[in-house]
């Protein structure tokens, strides 16, 4: 997760809160949150190397397949759930979203935007596109349900997920005028606070 994104998440998450990070990777975000905002954090991850990285970082981590396990964390007093760049990897993203909002009062979701112009050009070129946010080849990507910003916001509307805050980031991971003006075309990534 790059700096701007980290800073946004850092600003949104209240001090002393209890946070669960689904697909926490090496646990760096949770480590930062616990150092700077004194949160109590838990990561959920299924990749042994990333789990080890969490342990090295001193972050509490639970080995689990997210697809199988979000609902297990209901009633545990989480204030915020984080799902950074992993929603599109899940088998049932809509159900996952519903469950996450039962786990915590609020949820931070980051999303690679498949509607970005660079990716559209790739498709026009007749090839599966790749970018800094979506680097993997089609045959080895973990992404199952890629969507555009418009798609995602439509889903939120249909399911009455309230978007409390959102920030659109360009290809460099910065919040730019253009990315915020026409996000579906110019944003490479979107960050939402959903309640």
């Amino acid at each position: 997760m790059d700096n701007t994104l980290q800073q946004i998440v850092l600003n949104w998450i209240p001090s002393q809160s209890k946070v669960i990070d689904f697909g926490c990777g090496d646990g760096v975000l949770l480590k930062m949150l616990s150092e700077q905002k004194s949160i109590t954090g838990y990561g959920v991850e299924n990749d042994p190397d990333k789990i080890n990285a969490c342990i090295i970082n001193g972050v509490s981590v639970i080995q689990q397949d997210i697809d199988a396990g979000i609902h297990n964390y209901k009633g545990m007093g989480f204030d915020v759930a984080v799902m950074a760049s992993s929603i599109q990897c899940l088998r049932k993203p809509r159900d996952a979203m519903k469950n996450i909002l039962k786990v915590a009062n609020e949820c931070v979701i980051t999303l690679p935007n498949f509607g970005n112009w660079e990716l559209r050009l790739g498709i026009l070129n007749g090839k599966m596109p790749s970018s800094a946010q979506l680097p993997a080849k089609w045959y080895e990507t973990k992404n199952l349900h890629l969507c555009t910003i418009t798609d995602f916001e439509e889903l939120c509307c249909e399911e009455s997920f309230v978007i409390k805050k959102q920030v659109y980031l360009n290809r460099k991971g910065k919040s730019s005028w253009l990315a915020n003006r026409l996000p579906n075309l110019f944003a490479a990534q979107a960050v939402y606070l959903i309640g």
Binding site: T40, I55, S60, Q63, Q64, N72, M76
Partner: peptide, 16 residues
Amino acid sequence: IQMSAIKAGINSSYIE
């Protein structure tokens, strides 16, 4: 134990 540890809010990791 892990789930109870989370409810208790203590630092705990679980590996399978």
